[in-house]
Write a protein that binds this DNA or RNA. Sequence first.
DNA 1: CCCGGAACCTGAAGGC
DNA 2: TGCCTTCAGGTTCCGG
Length: 267
Amino acid sequence: MPELPEVETIRRELSPYVIGRSVRGLSLPWEGIVRQPSLEEFCNRLIGQRITGLGRRGKYLIFSLSSGQALIIHLKMTGSLWLKDPGKFVRAVIHLDDGSNIYFRDPRKFGIMWLTEDEESVGAKLGPEALGEDFTAKVLSEKLKKRTAPIKALLCDQGLVAGIGNMYADEALFMAKIHPMRAGGSLTEKEVKRLHKAIQKVLRAGINDKGASTDTYFRPSGEKGSAHWQFRVAHRRGENCPLCGMPLERIVVRNRGSYLCPKCQKP
DNA sequence: CCCGGAACCTGAAGGC
DNA sequence: TGCCTTCAGGTTCCGG
């Protein structure tokens, strides 16, 4: 499940292979992966373009093109980009002018890509970058005021803050000792500060460990990341709390599995 | 605007 | 062996 650390890892590791290269062709084993414009126009506009940069906004990858347009890719839950043929589940292949290929692997076909003339539009509906300078504890505190939804749901809301998903939300809440079902507006200033710090820590650690391969995430080389080995609650079903030894709990928040320690994270 | 739940989609894993 | 159920979760849409 690519979240900010996974998408950032892919951006960093893919960049040297694509920047400066031109798109020579396109294979689409599953055409539904292209959202817009029409298939024919998508190919016409993309083929021949040089990739001038590779950026990221939230969980979106942004390939800047020499035409001034941009190719946007969202990997959703099971997508990954490969430098070699992964074998199964290839939904699209971008052929580059040096003979190399980028393979879009996605078992569940949730991932999408599209062309836009305005790459800034990608961020229009997104909140501040979770690791950006403008995402301060004060900003978080303002955004949580008067909110009654569970803090876990709010952390995963990309319009509130961009980049956090299910796994890193669980990790940040555990580190800050806050129960995922607490209403956003009920957090004290102290708790918000702890949570803000925890978000920075778990995301930076995730990037350092090149992402978490709990399931279908792979790096462009096909290697896995190692961030999940550092997880203290996320995906640790049936295990005990690393701090107090209590059995971890799994609850459902907004239709998403959430892991927590019932003793360290009181309701 | 805010909140919660369903839908999208398919493979892996576990129970019987 | 094989069928069935459950689980996985980013985003979008819809109803209240």
